[in-house]
Structure formats: C-alpha cells, structure tokens
Design a protein around this nucleic acid. Structure first.
Length: 495
RNA sequence: GAGCCAUUAGCUCAGUUGGCAGAGCACUUGACUUUUAAUCAAGGGGUCCGGAGUUCGAGCCUCCGAUGGCUCACCA
C-alpha cells in the first residue's frame, strides 16, 4: 500500500517528486490538466484496430491512458489504452510542432490524454494514429506497476483493484464476462415473463437459509436488524401475493469464514415460478446456464483449471442415495435406523454429531464421498427432509424432499426445490430448527410466524431455484478464487 | 479458529556459510524522425513488514506482533 503523499510533503519519494514538479510547472504555465472538464471522444481503440479498412486514412479522436512510451529523438511511439483495448500513437515533431512535442516528452506513463490524428499502418504493420494534436486531460502522480509482469501482489491487486484493471487486461475481461452473465440471465428470465423484484436486505428475522447473520442496529426504531442471508421467504410471499414468476439478483451476507470459495457478501439469483416443480427448475437451470455459456463463452465446452466441462444436454441426474452408493459403496436402503446410520458414520471416521439422523448421515456421506467427484454438470436429487427445511416432501417418500442441487467442478452451483406450501408442515420444520438453535446451532433457522401466516392464505405449488452467481462466474472465467470475480473482495483493513 | 509458507527500490524479483544492499522495468540527463518488452550511455532512488533478542557484526539466526497466500474446519 503506497503511503499517501501530499505536494507539500518534504520527504516525497523522488519518483513522485518529479511528477509533482511537472504538475506545478503546468499550473504555472496556466495549463493545469485538472481544470479540463471534457474531451470530444468520437472513437475507441478496438473499433479502429478491428476495422482498419474503414478507418485507414481517416481522422479520429480518442482518449485514454498513456501506458508506454518509446522516444527516438524527434519522433516517438507510445500506446494509448482505453476501455476496449489499446492503440499505438506516432508523435512526430513535424506533425505537432516544437512546443507540443516538448510538452509531450514530459508526459508520464499513466497520464490521461486526448488525441486527434489520422489512422495509418506503420512499416512494421501496426495500426497507429499519426498524431496531429494531443491534450493532457489528467496528470498521473503515481507510477504504474511494471509493464511486463503487471501487478502480481495478490493483496495489492484486491486492495487497489483500479491498478489491477489498468495493468492486467485479463482482469477487465473477467468483469466484463461477469456483467454479461448477469445480463444473459436477466434477459432469459425477462423473456419468460419473470418479474424482477427487490426485497429487504435489512431483516428483522433472517430466514431462507442456514447461516450466521451480520447484525446491525436501527437507531430510531431502536431494534437490531440482520442483513439478509437469503431472500427466499420474501420471494415466496410474493408468490402468495400472486406475482407467479419472480426473481431477485442481489447480495447476501453471511457472517462466516473467508476462503477461496467464500466471501462474507456474495451474489445470488433466486427465482420462483408458480405451478411447476423441481423438474421444471431442472429444465430451467440447464437451459439458462447453457444460454449464458453460449452468449458469454461462445461454447458449451468450458475449460476450468485444466478440466474440460461439457455443458451440453442432457445433464446427468442422480439421486443422493444413488450418488452415495456409487461413490462410497454404501446403500442407504440397507440402513433403516438412525442408530445404524450413526454406526456407519463412526466406522467411516466422519464427524458424528450428537443426535445425527439417518438423513443427516446420508447427506454427510454424500458431501464426503460424492460431491468432489461431480465434475461434469450433475443434478443431485431428493435430499433428506432434515437438511431441507423449506422443501416439499416427496409424496411417496416423505423422509425425502423434492430438492436438487446442481454440481459442476465439484462445487455446488445451485439449489432448488418444489417449495413447501403446507403451513403446518412448515411450522413443524421451523420448530425443529428452533430446537437445533436452542441446542447451540447458530446457523439453524429462526421461527418466522408471519411467513407461516402467509402460507396459511395458500401458496400455489411452486418451484424455486437459487444460483450462486459468483461461482458461476468463476466457472465461466476459469477463476480459481472467488476473489478474482469480486471487484472489491472483503479484506481486513490495514492498520 | 488451527497448521505451513511469504513480506527486500514505485513494480517484478535475486541476495551464497551471518561480513559494504543487487538486477530488470519505471524515473532523471544525454544521443536517436517507423519503434513496439525500442536501443545506446550516464545517474538518482532502500524504515530489507514492525519490535525485541543473540552476535564483534543480522536482509539472513531466535522470540513476539502485523499483513497476506495456501491447506483444514464452518459455509454457497
């Protein structure tokens, strides 16, 4: 982290002092670059470099950051970077005049400049601008990181993301992809008559998931409020209200550990569609993610960290019971009681929690043995009711729910179910959670009487889906860490 | 929260057995009118993360602390 320097600081590093002096000199000559308020930009770098035939010989006007300089006496080359790429500028004393050329020589790498000139191709074949006129639009007072290696210090890249964006082009690509993925999803749902809604982030009761919430305080009401851990219960209230198809893309907050896959604030999309079930959600999930892949990556084959992921239909579907059987050899049909399940968990050397049920044991076995192996897109169906407090039971197997999670590259990307709309069952499930909470499980849900009350008015049979946007972006951009897909990941403050 | 590792110039990195603090880029000055990691010559630039200790002497060894990375645990 660079120290903060002021122009009157006497012990300014020399490298900064030089730039300050250049600024002072400009101000004295009445050419303070910070007084410039606009520049007439009519073109961008990439449109010129990719449409040479259209632009060759034409005059253009563009602006951006000076990112390199190669001076050769009375002529110079330099590179201008804008939002879309970069282009080479050729600056010759004969073209711009003595005075302007002397000024140009004092420009620093990092300065923001405006350029007018004619498009041409150099002897070495590079599309360039024959500069006729140059304007300093803003002075850069700090040196940029090294041009060849870029900025590598991970800490600095996240804390000073602007530098990362300037010098590491692939970073910009990642965040453009992120924006496109979200646009694609939004478009997909809007075209299918979903209504985008916004529900409260400040919650009196944090519901819809199992997680430790952040707590904040409202002064006037003098009450503690929680930052939402999921929008689920609000969105279902909207289904009860008759909106039929709703979705919300937004930030969730969970007061838990930070890791390569976890950030305390992260983005999800949740959507609810009346009159369908989890099979409907599977179809929607598969099509929506495929559409985004085609629009953003241009392919259904994606390379993630050296593995080829094939998103072509149909995606594998397997029940949790069968996944456990396949990857651990244990058939839960042979395990009938909680006691037998506990014995199995103990035998496998896994963490046996007090009072663990058969369903919780199956879920644990799944996470331990099956999950890491689900590299290609796989829907895992039929979760135990104990670990799915908001999902509807399977009519023929009430110990299981109509729920699936989608796994790609061994990571959970989404979670969906046929929504539980039986208020009495929902109350029981909440009470079960409350019991767990009282037993010390901070992540167990709280009772939400108003939500039960809403269900009592009648919620249509409904399918619901949640997708972790950050993880989807990681997959599509071949990013190893969630922090590489968050512009400003949560960091511990320095000092 | 636990373990392992890292922190040296603005940036990217070397630094031998504990013995004068180094390179490339960037910067300054000079040369150069088609270069592209431009080139050539000269120069400036350091709280070696912070603190304590061991030692004649510490960037290097020991201890404490800060920040970060990775792995594990909770979690999406």
């Amino acid at each position: 982290m660079p120290e903060i320097h002021r122009s009157d600081t006497p012990d300014l590093k020399e490298i900064l002092k030089v730039r300050r002096e250049k600024l002072t000199e400009l101000k004295e000559k009445g050419k303070d670059p910070f007084r410039t308020v606009k520049y007439d930009v009519t073109n961008h770098t990439a449109e010129i470099t990719s449409n040479l035939q259209k632009f060759e010989g034409k005059s253009v006007s563009l602006a951006g950051r000076l990112i390199s300089k190669r001076g050769m006496g009375k002529a110079s080359f330099c590179d201008l970077q804008d939002r879309f790429g970069k282009i080479q500028l050729f600056v010759k004393v004969n073209d711009v005049g003595e005075e302007a050329y002397e000024e140009f020589k004092k420009y620093d790498i990092g300065d923001i400049i405006g350029v007018k000139g004619e498009v041409f191709v150099t002897q070495r074949g590079e599309t360039s601008i024959k500069t006729a006129e140059m304007t300093l639009l803003s002075k850069s007072l700090q040196p940029l990181p090294e041009k060849w290696h870029g900025l590598k210090d991970v800490d600095m890249r996240y804390r000073q993301r602007y530098l990362d964006l300037i010098v590491n082009p692939e970073v910009k690509e990642t965040f453009i992809a992120r924006s496109k993925i979200i646009s694609s999803i939004r478009k997909y749902l809007d075209e299918r008559d979903f209504l985008e809604v916004e529900t409260p982030i400040l919650n009196a009761i944090p519901g819809g998931g199992n997680a430790k919430p952040f707590i904040t305080h409202h002064n006037t009401l003098d009450i503690d409020l929680y930052l939402r851990i999921a929008p689920e219960l609000y969105l279902k209230r909207l289904i009860i209200g008759g909106l039929e198809r709703v979705y919300e893309i937004g930030r969730l907050f969970r007061n838990e550990g930070i890791s390569i896959k976890h950030n305390p604030e992260f983005t999800t999309i949740e959507l609810y569609q009346a009159y369908t079930d989890y099979y409907g959600m599977m179809e929607l999930t598969e099509q929506m993610i495929k559409t985004a892949a085609e629009e953003v990556c241009g392919s259904l084959e994606i390379n993630y960290q050296g593995q080829m992921i094939n998103l072509s239909s149909p995606w594998a579907r397997i029940t949790m019971k069968d996944a456990v059987l396949k990857h651990s050899g244990v058939d839960f049909d042979d395990i009938e009681t909680d006691e037998q399940a506990a014995a199995l968990i103990k035998e496998k050397g896994l963490d046996l929690k007090k009072g663990m049920t058969r369903g919780e044991a199956m879920n644990l076995m799944f996470e331990e043995y099956a999950e890491p192996n689900l590299i290609q897109p796989t829907f895992v169906l039929d979760y135990p009711v104990e670990v799915s407090p908001l999902a509807k039971r399977k009519p023929d197997k009430p110990e299981l729910t109509e729920r699936f999670e989608i796994f790609i590259t061994g990571k959970e990307i989404g979670n969906a179910f046929t929504e539980l709309n039986d208020p009495d069952d929902q109350r029981e499930r909440f009470l079960n959670q409350v019991k767990k909470r009282e037993a010390g499980d901070e992540e167990a849900s709280m009772m939400d009487e108003d939500f039960i009350n809403a269900l009592e008015y009648g919620m249509p049979p409904t399918g619901g889906l949640g997708i972790g946007i950050d993880r989807l972006v990681m997959l599509f951009t071949d990013s190893y860490s969630i922090r590489d897909v968050l512009l400003f990941p949560t960091m511990k403050p320095k000092n």
